[in-house]
């Protein structure tokens, strides 16, 4: 009776599951030496084949997304610059949209981050455990509300509230380029950004909450034992431990804000790019697509698809950066 040769029992990577004894995974064919009783039943072949195929389909879908967007959007890159909307070529068409998208998302990120971190701390370190669970559910609910409903609420209820504030900003801070003609309807980039901030709160909160909850108990207790107040404990133990995770969550939220369509489409009254964020004007890539797609055809269609491609690339970069930061965290989190 020989023990199975290369199936170490207790010490394999805990993330890898079940050391299979009866069969081997299909991707490591036993080329080195024949192993005992590795019968491959037809059911196994079919099942592992299906699993592998599904995984490959995912790879294929992602490639296809890029291929089809490039293929259908290509005419916009090669057309004469006069034929593109605005008459200044594709770059001239896309940059104000990119700028609008980026500005809106960054405002949303800046507003949402401190609040999200506050809620995450509230759930992880301030609220009683039971209440924390309930609040987690409520915040998840915020994530579940469809974006079109956010847009309608933002337009009908939220935006009018800002008209006095915009008027005040216009009167007192008009020496800044951001605050010029205050909108009378509230349908501005500022309003849209604030609604985006509400929409990305849940994702930043849930990521931050997870990492805060993982703070090593010993670090926290050590800080408290040294006489730290609760805030000093959070500052010396929780925040340093959680920062990379929070940054990752913020970048994920930024990715979501960049791609968010309906809220901006409904709230913003679009126009050319301007630094004035409390007046009408500006537009974002997703809103531009949603507004114009239903009636578009021919080259205009290609333009919009190419704009979608640009958006895809931007969000891809932001998301990859976010994943990279989150992955890096596990390298130096040290404690667990």
């Amino acid at each position: 009776m020989t023990a199975p040769p290369d199936e170490p029992r207790g010490d394999h990577d805990p993330t890898a599951t079940s050391g299979s004894v009866a069969t081997r995974p299909p991707d490591s064919p036993g080329t080195t030496r024949p192993k005992a009783r590795a019968t491959r039943r037809p059911g196994d072949v079919v099942f592992s084949g299906l699993s592998l195929a599904s995984g490959l389909i995912i790879l294929l879908i992602l490639v296809l997304v890029a291929v089809f967007l490039i293929q259908q959007g290509w005419p916009a890159f090669t057309a004469d610059s006069e034929e593109i909307s605005g008459g200044e070529g594709f770059f001239g068409y896309i940059w104000p949209l990119v700028a609008g998208t980026v500005v809106a998302s960054i405002i949303a990120m800046v507003v949402a981050t401190p609040i999200a971190v506050g809620i995450a701390l509230f759930v992880s370190h301030y609220a009683p455990r039971r209440i924390g669970v309930v609040i987690g559910f409520v915040v998840d609910l915020l994530a579940a509300v469809p974006s079109v409903v956010f847009g309608m609420w933002g337009l009908q209820t939220f935006a009018p509230q800002f008209v006095p504030l915009f008027g005040w900003l216009e009167d007192t801070l008009s020496f800044l380029p951001f605050f010029e003609d205050g909108s009378a309807t509230g349908r501005t980039l500022m309003t849209a950004s604030l609604v985006l901030a509400v929409m990305i709160l849940p994702i930043i909160t849930s990521v931050s909450r997870e990492v805060f909850l993982q703070t090593p108990r010993l670090h926290e207790e050590a800080a408290l034992a040294l006489g730290a107040t609760k805030w000093e404990m959070i500052r010396t133990a929780v925040i340093p431990f959680g920062t990379p995770g929070v940054i990752g969550g913020v970048m994920l939220g930024l990715g979501r804000a960049l791609g968010e369509t309906m809220a901006v489409t409904l709230i913003l009254s679009p126009g050319a790019f301007t630094w004035n964020i409390i007046g009408s004007g500006n537009n974002t890539i997703p809103a531009e697509i949603a507004l114009n797609f239903p009636e578009a055809s021919g080259l205009r269609l290609a333009e919009l698809i190419a704009a979608g491609l640009v958006l895809f690339v931007i969000t891809l970069i932001v998301n990859l950066f976010a994943r990279w930061i989150v992955a890096k965290r596990s390298e130096f989190s040290g404690a667990n």
Binding site: V65, G308, F312, N319
Partner: peptide, 15 residues
């Protein structure tokens, strides 16, 4: 799969 999570919904529609 991570990358796919980040695809904006409108890009999925365009695809």
């Amino acid at each position: 799969v991570d990358v796919m999570t980040g695809i904006p919904s409108i890009v999925a529609g365009l695809f």
